[in-house]
Write a protein that binds this DNA or RNA. Sequence first.
DNA 1: CCGCTGTGCTACGATTTTCGTAGCAGAGCG
DNA 2: CGCTCTGCTACGAAAATCGTAGCACAGCGG
Lengths: 92, 92
Amino acid sequence: MAVFDLLGRRWAQRVIWELREGQPTFRALRERCGNPSPSVLNTRLAELREAGVVETVEGGGYRLTEDGRRLLEALLPLHAWAERWAKRVSPG
Amino acid sequence: MAVFDLLGRRWAQRVIWELREGQPTFRALRERCGNPSPSVLNTRLAELREAGVVETVEGGGYRLTEDGRRLLEALLPLHAWAERWAKRVSPG
DNA sequence: CCGCTGTGCTACGATTTTCGTAGCAGAGCG
DNA sequence: CGCTCTGCTACGAAAATCGTAGCACAGCGG
């Protein structure tokens, strides 16, 4: 179950989620994620790049690979569940 | 994005996955997950119980709630992606 | 009553991960 | 040369996790 090793780390899923559109820079991505420390973000990005789901953009910025976009789609049901769950936990 | 807070912690997703069938005891669950330290497992179980996705069984053991089972279903696409990905990363 | 076994779970020092802040090297531009 | 952006590193402090040991309780056989 290597996926839990890749995606079970802090910020990993969040990074993929925040890369769902655009090609944010390192700093912009960091801000979108809620300002994790740059060292961790860099480590995650390195892991995700090595896993082939994230890639750098010529001239700066990051984006999902084709594989990454498939992973993002696989995260959609989880997100749908999360929204229903959030409403149930703290309605309003 | 509270779901990343709940499921972005180590072992959280794994615990849910390993509860997909049966009602394993604390120790059995721990073994299935690959022996995380009991303190972390207990913390995760407490968080998941508070979130309402895991519950204890009368007479011992743990299982998913109805909500937990829905969450498990939301994890299936992620798992399907993971299997394809694992084959691509290390074929054979 | 005693011991054996299994249950959930706690304690605690060691290790690993993450945090938070500061700053570096390089590129582009005036 | 200086300003601003880029990705990224350094480093001490804090938090999370590890690994091992063991506690309290319950059931059951003798």
